[in-house]
Design a protein around this nucleic acid. Structure first.
Lengths: 190, 190
DNA sequence: GGAAATAAACAGACAGGTCTGTATGCTTTG
DNA sequence: CAAAGCATACAGACCTGTCTGTTTATTTCC
């Protein structure tokens, strides 16, 4: 068989645990010892799969990028099937995310804040994720029949809502952003 | 005389150095040893003025809050005197900030990201600053003759622009936010 | 089928560095 | 002289990453 199967998938446990801890408490605040203890894994096992902590951070973000974009696409489809307009569906998905118990802002914004060097692979990947995520926003704008030109502003509304939801511990910013975006989408005459 | 004057104002040098380093590299990433070395100060002097690192962080943020709000008020007044409308003046000030060499996002958002406990005094003060800063936005909206109701959305645009400017290393997000805010201010009929 | 070989993970100590915060003297200055 | 600051060493905790073995699971081969 292929080489992707181990006796208990230690690599997967490490990634899962690291993602949870990094997101909840920060990349620098969480140490390797903590991760291996909670994942129930030997230190050498971790360092065999991830040569350095930064590599682990990067892999965690890559995994999270895929999961997050997929989760959003799914949630949007769900709200659309329930009759919501594209933009409204996007913001409903956003609010659903804000309302999750473990919401701690955007892992990629947080990474960009903690990894101050913009050339660091983690910073570069955070930028990449934002471009990917923006595609979802852009698509929602287009599907809504709104002019493409408003997409960047809607993107700013979304980033702002994420930050506000984190700082105020309140998902309501999603509604503020949604109303503004919908208004921009319809009343964009001139 | 009062107790605010020392032979070389070590306290002031500590605050200044700490603010620069914390902002540029992060609160956890910068250690006490680094601060005292660059401030040219003994460790005991620092701990006499600030009993713990967190106290220093909080004092740095308090100082920065005052300076930042004042700098914004001044810049807005300057742009207004040059003939700009209130909202445009605010966003011109924002872009000026984004364009400064040492721009590294919002020190308070960064603090909220690094200090994960929302009850921590630093987190609470970051929230306080956001409320203070929002007053400037609110004022600009009102002065512009726009309906007060759009102020929260303009606030989200501003937060989003800050994050985007940080992640993309590009001040252009200020223009995107300005255009959207101005459009909201004028075309807010229904 | 059963034994040997191979690969992966576990366990825990260790090195070398950094962190916060304290303690002890010495120097400068008002 | 007294107060503030300087210099430096230290304690104790934590950090990343390495090293040495032991255990377990799978695969291979007879």
């Amino acid at each position: 068989m292929s080489a992707a199967k181990t006796r208990s998938d230690a690599r997967g446990r490490i990634l899962e645990t690291a993602e949870k801890l990094f997101y909840a408490e920060g990349y620098r605040a969480v140490g390797i010892d903590r991760i291996i203890a909670e994942a129930g894994v030997a230190k050498m096992t971790l360092y065999k799969h991830f040569p350095a902590k930064d590599d682990l951070v990067l892999e965690v973000l890559k995994s999270r990028d895929k999961k997050l974009c997929q989760a959003f696409a799914d949630a949007i489809a769900r709200y659309r099937n329930a009759g919501a307009q594209p933009l409204a569906a996007f913001f409903a998905a956003l609010k659903e995310w804000f309302s999750s118990d473990d919401f701690r802002g955007c892992a990629f914004i947080n990474a960009a804040v903690e990894f101050t060097d913009p050339e660091h692979p983690v910073s570069e990947f955070a930028r990449f994720h934002k471009r990917e995520f923006f595609k979802l926003i852009h698509q929602a704008v287009v599907d809504d029949g709104a002019p493409e030109a408003i997409a960047p502003a809607v993107g700013l509304l979304v980033e702002g809502a994420i930050v506000a939801a984190l700082m105020n511990q309140d998902p309501a910013s999603a509604d503020v952003a949604r109303d503004a975006a919908v208004a921009m989408a319809s009343g964009a005459v001139s």
